[in-house]
Design a protein around this nucleic acid. Sequence first.
DNA 1: TCCCTGCATCGACAGCCGTCTATGCAGATC
DNA 2: GATCTGCATAGACGGCTGTCGATGCAGGGA
Lengths: 123, 123
Amino acid sequence: MQQARDSLTIIELTGQDVCAQPALVSEPIDEIAAAGLAPVFKALGDPVRLRLLSMIGAREGGEVCVCDLTAPFDLSQPTISHHLKVLREAGLIDSERRGTWVYYRLVPAALDRMAGLLSVPVS
Amino acid sequence: MQQARDSLTIIELTGQDVCAQPALVSEPIDEIAAAGLAPVFKALGDPVRLRLLSMIGAREGGEVCVCDLTAPFDLSQPTISHHLKVLREAGLIDSERRGTWVYYRLVPAALDRMAGLLSVPVS
DNA sequence: TCCCTGCATCGACAGCCGTCTATGCAGATC
DNA sequence: GATCTGCATAGACGGCTGTCGATGCAGGGA
């Protein structure tokens, strides 16, 4: 889709690269970092969005058409579109239009980043 | 504190052990799993709670008194208490009363579980 | 016993969030 | 151009959430 972005990803907010992230529990994070990370976890904090993310990530080929994401849910098409937007603005997924259809795919670096934050070092 | 629990952890809800969790993207998760996992991510989706978790986890000794968690924030004591309750009900932290003070500590297994869910296998 | 301290709970309230219907827009087809 | 399909956006609305002040309660000390 590559459309105008109306929000920033955590990486853009914090200025930190995926490779330069201390674990959450290694040292106390500051307000700025917390404010940048919380929206991403918040995006993950909805069962519909978790299932959407899982469906996209588990798909062979890594891409899923929106039309395939709407059917499994007992929700309206605008609601699914809304959840996809939240995931996209959190930097967790990306989208691309090809012809009539829009395809979504994971942003593995974003997921790995969050995973790395949660992992507890073997102290 | 060991007080009466008014909610269930994901492990209790899903019946899955920490060691028996497929990644979120390995296969589509079902409604039940999503409903169990989402509240934990939702608990992480607040900047104050992220900082609380980080403060507790980064503390030498692994334990933090509530009195030490209230000062760094420009928030009332009941508000901090509320956030600690959310984290505790999500299974991310645990608490124990010793004398006048209440001490909080991490539940590393819970954090590792969430980290494992987010990690993307090197396909 | 009385009071003080540390923390949890209660009740209230503003703002956010998930959902819907209605509508708009782009691409494909006729 | 007219129309149809796939998806996004707009606006509305009820319920949830983060915050507060007030209060309750347990433990320790005078």
